[in-house]
Write a protein that binds this DNA or RNA. Structure first.
Lengths: 335, 335
DNA sequence: ATGAAAGCGCTAACAC
DNA sequence: GTGTTAGCGCTTTCAT
């Protein structure tokens, strides 16, 4: 059995209470006593048992993070940055993946409650999710939680996310300024907040500019293959630009187009979203909309920590983080 | 305070011991009693406090996983598959990232010990790591651990990994069979096991075939930019093929080459490694060596579970998982 | 400033 | 089969 507080106490000639106080930096312990205790603790290689500690303190010092897909660079970057942010906080991050399944998310939320996380960050699934009542149990358990990257619109809950609507509008405005008029849109399922925002931006922009109404293509998935396969047979007659909701899809579009003998951007322009590594890896550098993933992660982590610690109130409205349009060659025909 | 075992016991008219036994499926509890207890537990929404449980059982039901970089799809896929494998095991996975830093890995190992993980999976850093003595503390703490994807050669420890040496040799043989002779190699730091294996395969192959000896290019990093920048100024005079230790680097090479006006595979062939999404996303589909990431994850997870549970012995020698060469267009000049 | 002792919520002998 | 009870290792009043 590993060394416990009692061993340290005995060796230092004090009580366990004193050891506990000293090691936790309580001010009322004599400096010399503390030093001695610390020395003994180090000498013995004492490490408090975290489970005993959590039990006694009735705190878990644990923050949860749920992402739909850890293999998606967008979410893994989010996780990495959150991890970094919590590094010095005394809190640990428990990462789970919902695999884009509402049922899975539900199960994970339940596990998180079971594990007594003190706060939870949720990046919602990218599928329609009608019944999110399971999230109420977090409130029931007194566990603060926040959405990141998106949210469930049926819930009046704060979310740390980028301004997807404005970002998409800026992108379209930029393309418009470059002379593009007939722009097709490849999106994900409707009734998914983070896609809906961009869909709305698209519709609004077309209307505001008096441009021809075009059907938004709602693909079932938003991965490379989904867009690649779609664009293989897509009717691109008269289309000057294809706008996608992420960079992977844009890549899928580019590769499918070039296999059809269409060159990007000479014959048709393509734009992505996120400014992920894929936008740089692309055969023709991708015009895209930068999401500040790092900023989101830091902001969400700080906020959930505040909530966990001080029980500070969740300010209802947080201004979304601005996006930035990055123009590269894939929309350069007329630039 | 949330409902505890005592509440269930009182409500069901039994003792806490009975509740505990019943809920943990102990056979000696009367079926009816068990049913009643389970009903009460559900009704009250009872969830055992995991920390009290772990403290009492002196078990954490926690497995650790350390990866160098969670934003690397190779490792995030590993994590996802391990997560899946543990889903029904009663164990949870704690994921940490060493950010390719030995010091960080050391710190994480220390944390893992502190958290009493019952087993640890370590994907080593991709940098030379001379002093890995901190891993001895795992033995000291009686925590079984295994390497995944690579290993530290100075430690006689089992590792679940693919047969990188054979994989690279097969790849070279395939290229050779396609008529390629003058093949350059872009690798990572030397003194990193998973790179050394491939470097050795390269050297051995050249020697065995009596081919001209070529210097292996040891890049500092193995990411897209590292290879992209290198290939921008690389001397490719007479080089028929560039072989990289991962797909990202191959992409970097391809894009740098095409900016130099060299076409792949017509002017020069490029091969990657891993068969990640990048090999398919590539402008010209990448010839690569498939690593069975799923297989590694499953195998490692099962094994570490065995070690954690039964304390089964770690069989010293596990046969490495075979790789598979995937031939695509990027080496198709002579195909 | 320090110690004694009562929990924290659960498990596991051991007794019946 | 079920109950009693003594821990698991730590924190935290409350005395002193």
């Amino acid at each position: 059995m590993r060394v416990k507080i009692e061993d340290v106490a005995r060796r230092a000639g004090v009580s366990t209470a004193t050891v506990s106080l000293a090691l936790n930096g309580n001010a009322k312990i004599n400096a010399q006593t503390r030093d001695r205790i610390e020395a003994v603790a180090k000498e013995l290689g004492y490490r408090p048992n975290p489970y005993a500690k959590r039990l006694a303190m009735r705190k878990s010092r644990q923050i949860g993070l749920i992402v739909p897909d850890i293999e998606n660079i967008y979410y893994s970057a989010l996780a990495q940055h959150a991890l970094n942010e919590l590094l010095t906080s005394g809190y640990a991050l428990t990462i789970s993946t919902s695999m884009n399944s509402p049922q899975m998310e539900r199960r994970i939320v339940s596990d998180m409650i079971g594990n007594c996380v003190e706060g939870l960050l949720i990046a919602p699934v990218e599928k329609p999710n009608g019944d999110v009542s399971y999230l109420d149990r977090l409130d029931g358990a007194g566990i603060p939680y926040l959405f990141v990257t998106s949210r469930y619109p049926q819930l009046e809950r704060p979310s740390v996310m980028c301004d997807l609507y404005a970002g998409m509008k800026q992108l379209l405005a930029t393309l418009h300024a470059h002379g593009y008029r007939r722009m097709a849109m490849l999106s994900g399922s409707s009734d998914v907040y983070c896609f809906d925002l961009r869909d709305n931006a698209y519709r609004d922009f077309l209307r505001e500019q008096g441009l021809e109404e075009r059907r938004i293509e709602h693909l079932n998935g938003v991965r490379y293959d989904d867009s690649y396969r779609f664009v293989q047979h897509m009717d691109v007659e008269g289309v000057e630009a294809i706008v996608c909701v992420n960079d992977m899809m844009a890549l899928g579009a580019i590769n499918a187009l070039s296999e059809r003998g269409l060159r990007v951007p000479e014959d048709i322009a393509v734009a992505g979203f996120d400014d992920s590594i894929f936008s740089r890896v692309s055969p023709v550098a991708l015009t895209t909309v930068r999401q500040d993933v790092h900023g989101m992660a830091v902001r969400a982590a700080k906020w959930i920590l505040d909530l966990a610690r001080d029980g500070a109130e969740a300010e209802e409205s947080l201004r979304p983080i601005p996006c930035e349009v990055i123009v590269r060659r894939s929309t350069g025909r007329l630039a």
